[in-house]
């Protein structure tokens, strides 16, 4: 069993496991609010002798049960278990988005959503880069070669580069 510290790690490992075993892998989500009256939360209080002297410390902490949200990917065939646990409500949206992404892999749909966006961004940045380079090239070549044939040469150079 592996416990991950970040959601991203869990996400990548889960999608890898899903790609390998899409039929048997399942993803469970658990929302848990602990029962503060359960014996395991009250075990420490039984040691009277230690706490008797200092009453101030023995005052009960504000007993607000803190819920947790756990993601677990499990494949019964290989026995692989991947877990990620959080107690922040800010993570819930991202985690369910992760579930949705994993769901696409499960349903054998092609991964999308971000893929086209990234491609677009990349395309935009690369074209931007080439334009910048091109302008640089011309600015470099223009002052050194003042002959009328210069722009044509520069153009040829660029074509060769591409």
């Amino acid at each position: 069993m592996v416990n991950f510290d970040t959601l991203e790690e869990w996400q990548t490992q889960t999608s890898l496991l899903l790609q390998a075993r899409p039929t048997t892998t399942r993803i469970s989500t658990k929302y848990n609010i602990p029962n503060l009256e359960a014996p395991r939360y009250n075990a420490a209080k039984k040691r009277k002798r230690d706490t008797e002297g200092k009453d101030g410390d023995a005052a009960p902490a504000p007993a607000v049960p803190r819920g947790t949200f756990t993601l677990k990917t499990f494949d019964p065939v290989s026995g692989a278990t991947l877990k990620f646990k959080t107690d922040k409500s800010a993570d819930v949206g991202r985690m369910v988005a992760g579930l949705g992404r994993a769901g696409r892999v499960m349903a054998a749909l092609p991964e999308k959503a971000e893929a086209p966006d990234v491609a677009m961004e990349d395309a935009a940045t690369t074209t931007g880069m080439t334009l910048a380079e091109a302008s640089k090239d011309t600015s470099h070549t223009a002052p050194t070669e003042s002959k009328p044939a210069a722009p044509a040469a520069a153009k040829k150079k660029k074509k060769g580069k591409k």
Binding site: R21, P22, T23, R26, I27, S28, I33, N35, P65, M106
Partner: peptide, 29 residues
Amino acid sequence: GHGSVHLTQKRLSYETTAAPSKDDPLADL
């Protein structure tokens, strides 16, 4: 005030041809 909610998701592979078998262990990919 206490308790859990369990949610599980998996591929619905019941009555599909794309299930791994001994002959073709990678049929579901």
